[in-house]
Write a protein that binds this DNA or RNA. Structure first.
Lengths: 327, 327
DNA sequence: CTGAAAGCGCTTACAG
DNA sequence: CTGAAAGCGCTTACAG
């Protein structure tokens, strides 16, 4: 049995109240008593039970993090920085991989509620959130619109889409395709497509948007690429909405005997450290992942501490073009 | 204020005891009472408070996961499968990124103890663990030796190292270098090196082992590679102890104008889904990551449930050679 | 400066 | 089949 506060109190010859006060630095305590308590804690190798503390304080310092999957270079990097920023402030992360399944999201949400998390960071659909929303639960969304009252943090998707498309045009591409993952109304990532469309129109170029409904299945892209080439024999530029799609396209192009960037130029999106390490030749739009993580945590903690009188906000951090060898 | 068990009891016109019994399916309850309780729970949108439950039951269903960093293709895949296997059994994951820093590991460890986690899965140094070990804490290590009494789960590192080296030899390499991350006594991954050495000796070839002390810094590898080429002008094979090192070497070779696999052949280690997606041309030794995750959780739960009377065990799951274009 | 008592939201003997 | 009481390990008014 682990020692509890009563054991410490007994050993130090004081009351539990006093031990608690020493631990929490509350009220006046004589130095003598303080020393005795610390000594007893050390001797017993005592650690306070945070479950008991949480029950009393109604605060767990737990944050639920709901992602489609941590097994993805962008989300794992995001999770890393979110965990770091949270740890700095004394918060801990409960990891949830929803795989973008609504039922799975709802299960996780219920689990998080039962565990009395202080807040949730979501980068998954979570229509379910509205159900729970009336509870005083602090929520921040990363790159997803969940409800009008939930703040959104992400990269400047419109600017990113604009820069990607303009880069391809500047490099002389005329027939530029945009490939997206599943297009959901809820994601501001659609702004990447919107920017593509606006820039293309502005330059009098034809829109060619393709959507892959099966996300997270790199192998499934082949069909889509085949279709693209059937419909556009002259494709000379590809703007993919994430780096995994771009990587998949590069392999496809290679198998097809196409020269990159000679025959076709490619721009991705995300620019995670992992992609930079494994596929450094890819030109891509780099998200400020650490910044997104830090802002998400900052806003969430404001909500948790009730400091956020401002309405739901949207915050889009600047992106960077990493110009490499595929353009 | 969220509803609590007393609110449900009042609304259903029964005692808290009865509500609790309905929720937990304990003892005999008349159907009528049961229905009334469920109705009240639904109407109030009641969810039990797991913090209170945990305080009583001394069981949190929380598992601490300590990794060097989730921002890494192998660990994020491992974490994904660990979380999935845990969720299946009703356990939740508390994520810790130690960055292999001893002080950081100790802080996380203390945090996990305070939070009363039921067990810990560790894939980081954690010398600190022995300090806490006398507590009845269930621990499983992934690819690390922590203490004689802590079970280890991993891939069959010796077999992996053997297959990698043999493959290079079979392909005609004579001057084969092995590049490792920081070599620590605690990791069974050293068996990869041991196997390399054994196979090389068996074939009468000269050992050329290089160690990079700075892990997780892909850029820092350049120096090491320079050194390798200074000392071995004839290198024609590289067995890297993980795929990120291999990827880094591939880029170095490219910059140096070397042809792969013509001038030098390369084998990595890990074979994560992300690496397969981003760098499919890399020949590598694939770890059975999902299997490692499932076994870790299985053994941990046995320990948690006190079913593990067996001593600490070591379990090494079979690896697969993914032969691609770099060999 | 210190302690006894009540309470956080549950569960489980125990009694009926 | 059901309920009143005690207790999980803490903290905080309240009293001294």
């Amino acid at each position: 049995m682990n020692p509890k506060i009563g054991d410490v109190a007994q050993r130090a010859g004081v009351s539990k109240t006093t031990v608690s006060r020493v631990m929490n630095n509350r009220g006046y305590i004589s130095q003598e008593t303080r020393d005795a308590v610390y000594k007893a804690m050390r001797e017993l190798n005592y650690f306070p039970n945070d479950v008991a503390r949480s029950l009393f304080s109604k605060k767990t310092n737990l944050i639920g993090l709901i992602l489609p999957t941590i097994n993805n270079p962008f989300y794992s990097e995001l999770a890393f920085y979110i965990e770091s920023a949270a740890a700095e402030k004394g918060y801990k992360i409960l990891l949830c991989n929803s795989l973008d399944s609504i039922t799975s999201e709802e299960k996780y949400l219920e689990m998080l509620m039962r565990n009395q998390v202080d807040g949730i960071i979501v980068s998954s659909h979570n229509r379910g959130l509205s159900n729970y929303h009336h509870r005083q639960l602090a929520v921040v969304a990363v790159d997803r619109y969940l409800s009008p009252s939930i703040p959104v943090v992400g990269s400047d998707n419109y600017e990113g889409g604009k820069k990607a498309t303009e880069l391809l045009i500047r490099k002389g591409c005329k027939s530029i395709v945009h490939i997206n993952g599943p297009i959901e109304l809820e994601t501001p990532a659609n702004l990447r497509r919107k920017a593509y469309e606006d820039v293309m129109k502005e330059h009098g170029l034809t829109l060619r948007v393709y959507e892959n409904r099966k996300s997270f299945d790199h192998r499934a892209y082949k069909e889509l690429f085949d279709q693209i080439y059937q419909e556009n024999r002259t494709v000379d530029g590809v703007f993919a909405s994430d780096d995994l799609i771009a990587a998949s396209f590069l392999q496809y192009a290679k198998r097809r005997g196409l020269n990159i960037p000679g025959d076709v130029k490619v721009v991705g999106y995300d620019g995670s450290e992992t992609v930079q390490a494994l596929l450094p030749e890819l030109t891509t739009i780099m998200q400020p992942t650490e910044g997104i993580a830090r802002e998400s945590i900052r806003i969430l903690l404001e909500k948790i501490n009730g400091e956020a009188d401002h309405e739901a906000e949207e915050m889009y951090l600047p992106v960077t073009v990493l110009e490499r060898e595929t353009t």
